[in-house]
Design a protein around this nucleic acid. Structure first.
Lengths: 208, 208
DNA sequence: CGATTCGTTGACGAAGTTCAAGCTGCGTGG
DNA sequence: CCACGCAGCTTGAACTTCGTCAACGAATCG
């Protein structure tokens, strides 16, 4: 909700921050005393498992919030592209005045939104084939970016793979497979056009 | 069939309800004006996809909360065993008095707990083998039920399969495989003893 | 111009699903 | 009591999918 309030606003604990492509916004284990609302660019959150395998837990675009952990960061966040975001101080639970109530309600809403997004992603993980996952990913991204047919995918193949639980090889193969089936077309490797929305959404298993 | 009879009515909007094994607690699409805190028994939440495939999004045991959707139920909830639960009215966002603050804070805590649980599950779903998933499931369930070595699994194989994104065949095969490896032993099909906690947890990829 | 990074593609094998059959426990009815 | 049916679980064999290994093409940057 970046309304009329522009510039740094110390009174409300919101501050506009910028990161360059590839930079880390925060690290796993950091104290989570702020959360972020992206105004420009794209970000990703990820964890590393004991075996070194990277688990990408989410992508975030303009308007999205992330970093809602309760105490410490459970995952790190990185800039996929150059980005700008509001860094927002979390409300102190002890405060009970009007301002706190307002902030609390913002926080709640953001929390709920974050949970819903996580929830949506979980849904994508029940026994699904690579084409189904990729189709779902494309549809979801198209919706979130508000690009109905032409989706610009800001993240690399490795990011997509680590997000969908596939390898870059399978992701790549599946992209070409979807192209050959006439479902989508690719311009370069990041610009995706949905040629047959009905079939793509059917494959994705959503009807939104 | 509908909600279990009887309830301990309070002025706080909490009411004890009971359901029998197999009964539905609420349906996908219902208005989510209440949430639940389980006091006895076990429950599951699930969704159905267009292709009829069932996605089991969570198991809940005594002390757990579920049904924290923002507006409408995104998933249905069913009783795995006979159960008892507190059905709690969600706070109205307009109210700003003391009681509302208390309820709001309860709600927040429950919401955060719910999010963390979802988050944990997501983390378990990145490219993992059947033995890894099952081991993780056993460890997680043992922890949540506070049964360090002897876990009583109240749900059937189909439930486990739909939760882990596997088939009942693979789940069954993997159970026998873990038994043959000396990691666990089964008494009947629902009582699981962890024989080698170290290796089981290593396989699960957690050290908690 | 090579060096590097990222994406694509082919061959092969391991893991998991599908198909099919059989087993076990349990309730029902003779 | 046993016979029977049923539902849940297990197991075997064939097949499919996806990961692994390896090579190669395209874009970028010094």
């Amino acid at each position: 909700m970046p309304d009329g309030l522009c510039g740094d606003d110390h009174a409300t604990g919101r501050r506009l921050v910028r990161f360059r492509k590839g930079e880390t916004i925060y690290y796993e284990g950091d104290v989570a005393d702020t959360w972020f609302e992206l105004t420009e660019g794209a970000a990703r959150t990820c964890r590393f498992r004991a075996d070194g395998h990277r688990q990408l837990t989410g992508f975030y675009y303009a308007g999205d919030v992330f970093g809602m952990e309760d105490q410490d960061r459970l995952e790190s966040a990185e800039a996929i592209t150059d980005l700008a975001a509001w860094r927002v101080l979390k409300p102190l639970s002890e405060r009970a005045d009007e301002a706190a109530l307002g902030a609390q309600s913002d926080y709640n809403e953001a929390l709920t939104r974050a949970r819903d997004s996580v929830d949506e992603r979980i849904f994508l993980f029940g026994r699904r084939t690579a084409p189904e996952r990729l189709a779902a990913f494309i549809v979801l991204t198209a919706n979130r970016l508000r690009m109905p047919t032409d989706v610009e995918l800001p993240m690399c193949r490795t990011d997509i793979a680590d997000h969908l639980g596939l390898t870059i090889h399978t992701v790549s193969r599946t992209f070409t497979q979807l192209c050959e089936s006439g479902l989508i077309s690719l311009v370069g490797s990041s610009s995706c056009r949905i040629l047959d929305p009905v079939r793509v959404m059917a494959l994705a298993g959503v009807e939104r």
